[in-house]
C-alpha cells in the first residue's frame, strides 16, 4: 500500500508497504530513518517514541496507514542543522547516554515533557518518563539531563524575551 505523510517537515511517500506494517517499520525500513528504535514492538519500552500530529506516541503501535496525511516528527527532526536541541545537548553532557538504544525515545519523550511542564519536579519527570525503559543507566543521569535541559531552556527563553 501507499503511505504519504509529512516527516520532519518533508512530504514523504512510500509505495509497496505491507498493510500490517507499523509506522516504526515504515520509518526505519522504508524512509531511512532508523533513529526510532525497535526494542519491544509492543509499546512497553518507549524506544520508538515519535510525535504524530504533535502527540507523543509509540511508532510501533501506529499502523502505517494510520499515519497517512499525518505530521510525524522523529528523533532525526529535533536538531536544527548541526546544532543539538537543548534536550539532546543535556543528555550528552549529563552522561545520560550509555548504549544509547533508549536514548532517541527518551529524548523525544523529554522534549514532550518539557513542552508540557517547563519546570518539572523529579516526580513529574519520573511519571512522564515511566514508559521509557533504560537498561544501562539506572535513570539517575537521565533525571539530571532533564533538569539540565529544563534550566537551559528556561534561560534561553528568558533571554529571548
Amino acid at each position: 500500500m501507499k503511505i504519504a505523510c509529512t516527516v520532519n517537515g518533508r512530504a514523504r511517500t512510500v509505495d509497496g508497504a505491507w498493510e500490517g506494517e507499523s509506522l516504526l517499520s515504515v520509518l526505519r525500513d522504508r524512509m531511512q530513518l532508523p533513529g526510532s528504535k525497535n526494542a519491544c514492538e509492543q509499546g512497553e519500552c518507549g524506544s520508538c517514541s515519535v510525535y504524530m500530529d504533535g502527540v507523543l506516541v509509540c511508532a510501533c503501535l501506529v499502523l502505517g496507514g494510520q499515519a497517512n496525511d499525518r505530521t510525524i516528527v522523529t528523533i532525526e527532526g529535533l536538531a536544527t542543522g548541526t546544532a543539538l536541541h537543548a534536550v539532546q545537548q543535556a543528555f550528552v553532557e549529563a552522561g545520560a547516554v550509555q548504549c544509547g538504544f533508549c536514548t532517541p525515545g527518551l529524548v523525544v519523550a523529554t522534549h514532550d515533557l518539557l513542552a508540557r511542564f517547563p519546570e518539572p519536579s523529579v516526580m513529574q519527570i519520573r511519571e512522564a518518563l515511566a514508559g521509557n525503559i533504560c537498561r544501562c543507566t539506572g535513570y539517575a543521569k537521565i533525571i539530571d539531563a532533564v533538569q539540565l535541559a529544563a534550566r537551559r531552556i528556561a534561560v534561553d527563553e528568558h533571554s529571548a524575551r
Binding site: P34, K37, T74, I75, E76, L78, Q88, F91, V92, V97
Partner: peptide, 15 residues
C-alpha cells in the same frame, strides 16, 4: 564525553 553520544542523541548512531 562519549564520542558516540552526539550521534546517539540524534538517532544517527548505526546499531
Amino acid at each position: 564525553q562519549r564520542p558516540d553520544a552526539v550521534l546517539k542523541v540524534k538517532g544517527d548512531f548505526p546499531y
